[in-house]
Amino acid sequence: MRPKENIEKFVRVRKPHVTTSRQMDKRTLDDSFAAMEQTIRTKSAEHKPSVQRISILSRMIKLTAAAAVIIVTTGLIAVFVDRGIGEKPDTNTVSEIVKSPVEMMTAMSLERAFQRGGIEAVEEQSRKAFRPLGLKPKNLSFDQILAEFNGNCHSTGRTRL
């Protein structure tokens, strides 16, 4: 056997055999149990929700549920009103609705004019629009303009201008 193994064996076999005293056992176990109980109590107090917290939580849950129901209902109503229940979804593209960029610009400017000053502002806007063309929109009514936006220009509006 090598010297290193000799010395290792020497140390290993002479491991001290110590026994604890009864006093020490009692003191250590009592203190350990007390520490354990204290830890369990502290943890359970941390995790146990108070009555007030439960009621607040309950109220919050109720309010959240109510808000969720309102939002979903409103959303569904909005969708069905827009499209109509059971109707086929509107698949028209912008280019199909608006025939030309000029029409789109006109529609936008009239829309803004209406928002700004109502029917009077729309009429003023249309007057301004037709003035450079040398046309006299005296006979042009608001209904005719709307009809033109809706794509009926061939049937009514332009013929009268």
Partner: peptide, 12 residues
Amino acid sequence: VHDVFVSFAQTT
């Protein structure tokens, strides 16, 4: 040894 066991008990 006492302190070690008390500390250990606190990790329950």
